[in-house]
């Protein structure tokens, strides 16, 4: 691993079960899981239980999660978040399994779509958080520098 990876190692600089609210926000924004009448199965819309009637809280909590990660490691955390293994099958959220972090493939909303929005989370129009080069975006975020 490169020297930079030791500074932002998963489990050291940020928890490995990170960004649960960000996953909710990404699903909300990209996949419209909160939209009444969406064609998604009921279990997927259960995320609304976390923010009843207050869907804007997903963004607020997500930005808080990101803000708590050291500036130098935010992009690393997003890379980790995008690459995390996820349950291959839908799981009842009451079992807690889908409570793990990471992106999920959903019918009509594959992970690839969600990744594009994850890259935007730190941008000025979203959480507006500075990253490693003192800019508010993640340069070359697709490259898994932490591997």
């Amino acid at each position: 691993a490169a020297a930079a990876a030791t500074d932002c190692s998963p489990g050291v600089a940020f928890p490995t079960n990170l960004l649960g609210h960000c996953r909710d926000y990404v699903l909300q924004q990209t996949c419209a899981v909160f939209t009444p009448g969406s064609k998604l199965p009921e279990w997927m819309t259960s995320a609304e239980l976390n923010y009843p009637g207050q869907p804007y809280l997903a963004k607020l909590y997500c930005c808080q999660e990101l803000a708590e990660i050291p500036q130098q490691c935010r992009c690393e955390a997003l890379r980790y978040f995008m690459a995390l293994p996820v349950p291959s099958q839908p799981v009842d959220p009451s079992t807690g399994n889908v409570g793990q972090s990471g992106l999920m493939d959903l019918p009509g909303c594959p992970r690839e779509m969600q990744r594009d929005f994850v890259r935007l989370l730190v941008a000025p129009g979203q959480c507006n958080l500075a990253t490693i080069h003192n800019v508010r975006y993640c340069p070359a975020v697709e490259q898994p520098l932490w591997i």
Partner: peptide
């Protein structure tokens, strides 16, 4: 806010959300 950042958003304009 470089063009590349904006392009990430363009890619998801047609998505359900």
């Amino acid at each position: 806010c470089p063009r590349e950042v904006q392009m990430d958003f363009v890619r998801i304009l047609v998505t359900p959300g």
